[in-house]
Design a protein around this nucleic acid. Structure first.
Lengths: 188, 188
DNA sequence: TATATCATGTAATCGGTTACATGATTAA
DNA sequence: TTAATCATGTAACCGATTACATGATATA
């Protein structure tokens, strides 16, 4: 683990600023509901970033012994961490949108596929993205409030970001349904 | 390089089936215009996958000496390769959509940013995505025709896939413009 | 009473990126 | 005439994923 930070580092750090003292396990849950629509992570990486930030001195860690559950480590952002977040926001993005989509890739080479199989792949993708959309709409009810604000209204940036997931998934689903109709037209 | 194939492997293989005998350099160009909207790659990875597929026996390689340019290797898909493409199409996707977007991540934690800086980030993102959209629309004029079809009409799956990039970028731009207006409202 | 799932994390691997190389044109 | 960009690839590294570990509780 080198002494450096990456976008995902700040993603975890930002959530920690919102959530207060939290374990890696819980941060992963939060990440999956709050940010999964715009940044893929695995739970392992959350732990990686927490360790990294501890080395960087951006967070404090405290161990808690538990009997019924594995022991946990609780992380808490400190002033260095908050300062790092602000510094990050003053820099330029290091890269543009990264995307990989196996369904679209398969569709593109649909000429090599049996249309029946491809149609099935598309139906599964539709179910998948419908579930995502439902999940994102459900998540809107659990948007955290801005840290250090004494209101408990949902953070306005979070709220606005949630619209992106909505627009994106609806557009995707629209395309998928049209694509399915197209592929069904190719059968036999 | 292990004896295995991944989605990106089939992406390169599929393009090779469309393009006929091609060098890694040229395949990268083709990939960037044809598939960049749905799968990120670097040119290095194209070369990696070509070597991998040669080991797998899916493609044939031939060296060409050049004087004014570095020597090149020309790759050509063989029957094993075409069979591999068809087999792949008969399997289930190994993963869903993968996405990482630093602009959205920064926006989400906009509470820690100076709105002026965030607005600037959004303006640059708008310019970036406008350029992408223009690029994708230009690309529509260069869609390859289905291999082994004796027409030279653009491949129908490629054409349909191109609509996805269109829908996606337009939706993204819509959101970005709304987000910019929102952030500008937060200034001062 | 198996078998998921919860809960919590570490270790090993690898897909994908960055850095390195190199000579020929083209542009400022 | 200095600096990009073209053209073509290889080698090294690392961000991110998969696999491993472990005991408790809930579920079928």
């Amino acid at each position: 683990m080198t002494q450096e930070a990456y976008p995902i580092t700040y993603g975890v750090l930002g959530l920690l600023a919102f959530a207060g003292p939290t374990s890696g396990y819980d941060l992963n849950q939060i990440f999956q509901t709050a940010l999964a629509s715009l940044w893929n992570v695995t739970h392992s990486q959350i732990y990686n970033e927490l360790r990294r930030m501890e080395e960087l001195g951006w967070v404090e860690m405290e161990r808690f012994e538990q009997t019924n559950r594995p022991n946990k480590k609780i992380y808490r952002i400190n002033e260095n961490g908050r300062e790092a977040l602000r510094r990050w926001q003053a820099t330029h993005p290091s890269s543009g949108l990264q995307m990989r989509d196996e369904v679209l890739l398969r569709f593109t080479f649909g000429s090599f596929a049996d249309p029946r199989e491809l149609a099935q792949t598309l139906r599964e993708a539709i179910a998948d993205h419908e579930a995502r959309l439902a999940q994102y709409q459900e998540n809107k009810n659990h948007i955290p409030s801005t840290p250090s604000s004494n209101t408990n209204e949902p953070d306005k940036y979070f709220v606005f970001m949630a619209r992106f997931a909505d627009i994106f998934e609806k557009g995707y689903l629209k395309w998928l349904r049209e694509a399915l109709a197209f592929v069904e037209g190719m059968i036999e």
